Every structure is written in C-alpha cells, then in structure tokens.
Amino acid sequence: ASENGLSPVRIFREQLLLERLHSVNRYSYYLYRLFDPSIPWDEKQNYLLDYEEDYAPYKVRLWSLLAPERYRCLYDNKLVFNRFFGSLGFPLAKVYGVYDPVHGLTTDGGNLRDAPNLRDWLRASGVQEFVFKPVEGTQGHNVLVFTGRAADDPDKLLAINGDVYDAERLIASTNDDAALKAGNPGADTRSYLIEQRIRQHPELRGLVGEVLCCIRVQTIVTLEGVPKIIAAVLKLQPNSVGVDHLIHGAIGAWVDLDSGTLGKGRTRAHLDYISTIPGANRPFVGFQVPCWPEVRDLAVRAAAAFPWVRSVGWDIAVSEGGPVLVEGNERWSTSLIQMPAPHGLMTGEFKALYEALSEGERS
C-alpha cells in the first residue's frame, strides 16, 4: 500500500471484489501484485490462479485439460523424455546410466544397483562431472551436481556446493525421499538418472555464475494445431545449490519474446521486483539471452514433436555449444511465468484453447 500510495482499505476492497466477481483468490492477488494501480481492472482478471498447495484442484484441472494423464509419462519420467526427444535428434544431455536398487544399469550394460556398482562405474568411466537426479523428480529436490573428483582421493566426488561425496554417501542420499513424495505423489523415488553436466554459456556464467540456469519457455499448440511460444522466463540462481528453481532461491526474470532481452525479476521471498543479482549487485535488466533465435526454434520444434500435449513449460539451457533441451514440464508452474510477467496468461490463443478444452470436457 505504501509503495503505491494506496490505502490498505482500498486494496482490501479491490481484492474482495475480484474474488467475488471473478474468483481471483487472495493468494493470487498478492502474488501477482494485482494491487498495482498501473494494471487495468480488466487485465487483473487475466491471470491464471495460483494456490499455496502444490496440487490444488484448480491446478490439477488446468494440467489435466492441457496434458491428459495418459501422456504424462513422456515428460514426468526423465529417462523416457531423454530417449523420446533424443531419438528425434533434439540436443540433450548424454545419459550415463540409471541408479536403481533393482533395475539399475549403466548405458553399456553394467549393474548400477548399489554403492560398489557405483564406485566401479566411477573408476572405469573416468567421468569427472555429472548430474545425479531423480528419474521422476520435481522442483529440483534431491538433485546433485558434481564438478570433479577430490585431488587426494579420486573415489570422492566434489559437489557444486563444496560438499564431498563417496559412493556410499551418494547412495544413502536417495533414502531421503520425503520431498520427492510430496512434490510428485505416486512417483518412483528409488531411481536416479546419471547424466552429463551441461556447462553454461560464458555470457550467462559471467552474469550469474556456474549453476546451470534454464529458460522456461511456455508453449501451446493452438486450436489450429500450430505450436507457439506464449511466454518465457530466465531462472537466475546466484547460489551454489545446483538447481535453478525459485523455491531454492532463484530469480525468475521475464524474457521479451521478440528480442530475448531480460526484464525485471521476482523471487518467492517477497513481493518486490528485482533488477540485480543478489550478492553481486550485477544488473540483469536488458541482458541479452545468448542464442535466443535458436532457443525459440528449439521450443517450437519440441512442442510440435508431440502436439497431443497442448501446453508445456520447456526448460532450455544455453550451453557452451548452444541450446540444450533439459526438461519438459507438463505440470508447469503458473506462478513462475506470471510473477515477473507484464500481463496474465489467460488471454488470446491460450484463453481460446482453454475454453475450447473446457467445453469439450463438459460435453
């Protein structure tokens, strides 16, 4: 209220009116800064709602309309995702194997089911850098990024945050699966993908550091069957936690779809906009995302590869060699996109698609 010179009573009254007339809940009203007087009343109705619960009924219905349950495995299972899109020639990280206490195998057929198997693979493969992440993970939980081996013991791995792991500690970490179960109910929490670490483009390293920061590119397949980009946000992670999710302290910065330059950002820590990298005081507004035309092309081609899923949030990294497809999120975050956005998503072709699918569900 003080920021915009408004009385708390006026803000409270507007929030109640939006909730009563247009079902805009209190959480969304403040999360998306709809109290900002520069946002016209009509545009305040164009935001997809959000809720504190990860699987609130509104979110589940939205996801189910756009990505029917029968197609979820293609995106939810990271090995299936890698195999499908890799078979079509998309640029992806190389998979070294899957750790699983029952089914674990390396790509050359060796067992990868316990700590001795993992230690044998580490010694034989010579792989120095890799990512260890749940096959059916979500929100960056339990992802570990390793940047090399300890100088005094090649059996010990150095994580990006400075921690040291041996094979036993790494396997033991898979038992801590409470966050995985909460974030993706029903997921198999025993299986972990071991894949190539993607090194970030030098211009992004200079801006934000070593943690791989993906661009979330939101696509739809329109009613006419045309894949289109409707929004993009670059996730900026200044902390050495290994993942770029906002719940782990990252910033989501709006990307102008035409130019690929960054606008202001938001975090989950507060309601204010951000324009500099915390701790480094480096401004990012106006920064040009490297390889932006190639990023756009990759997202559109990925959306066209499986058009039965009508909206996906693609995580695309810009590596030293160009854009790489990291993940496709069929249960994508409305708040990641809309928090830094200059407008809500429920407009234009997305709104037409949502209304047509909703009508089809009712008929």
Rank of each mutant, 00 (worst) to 15 (best):
G5R: 04
G5A: 11
I11V: 15
F12Y: 10
Y30M: 08
L31E: 15
R33W: 08
L34Q: 07
P37I: 04
I39W: 01
W41D: 14
E43R: 14
L48V: 08
W63P: 04
W63G: 06
R70N: 12
Y71F: 15
Y71G: 03
N77V: 03
S87H: 07
S87V: 06
P91Q: 09
A93H: 07
A93V: 01
Y99A: 01
D100L: 05
V102S: 10
D108W: 06
D108K: 11
G110S: 15
L112D: 08
P116H: 08
W121M: 03
F130H: 03
F130D: 00
V131W: 07
V135W: 06
T138Y: 07
Q139H: 07
H141Q: 04
V143I: 15
L144E: 03
F146Y: 03
F146N: 06
D155P: 01
L157A: 01
L158V: 13
A159Q: 09
D166C: 14
L170T: 08
T174F: 04
N175C: 10
D176R: 15
D177H: 14
D177I: 01
A179G: 02
N184I: 02
R190Y: 09
Y192C: 07
L193Q: 07
Q196N: 09
R197G: 10
H201T: 05
R205H: 12
G209Y: 06
G209E: 05
L212I: 09
C213M: 13
T219V: 05
E224F: 06
V226H: 02
P227C: 02
P227T: 03
G242N: 00
D244V: 00
H245T: 13
I251D: 11
W254I: 01
V255N: 04
D256W: 02
D258F: 00
L262C: 05
R266H: 14
R268E: 04
Y273F: 15
N281A: 12
N281W: 03
R282T: 14
V285Q: 04
F287P: 06
Q288P: 01
Q288G: 01
C291I: 00
W292S: 13
V295A: 06
R296D: 10
R296T: 10
D297I: 01
L298H: 03
A304Y: 08
P307N: 06
V309K: 03
S311A: 11
S319C: 08
E320D: 03
E320F: 01
G322M: 02
V324T: 12
V324E: 08
V326E: 09
E327F: 13
G328F: 07
K351Y: 02
Y354V: 01
S358Q: 12
E361G: 05
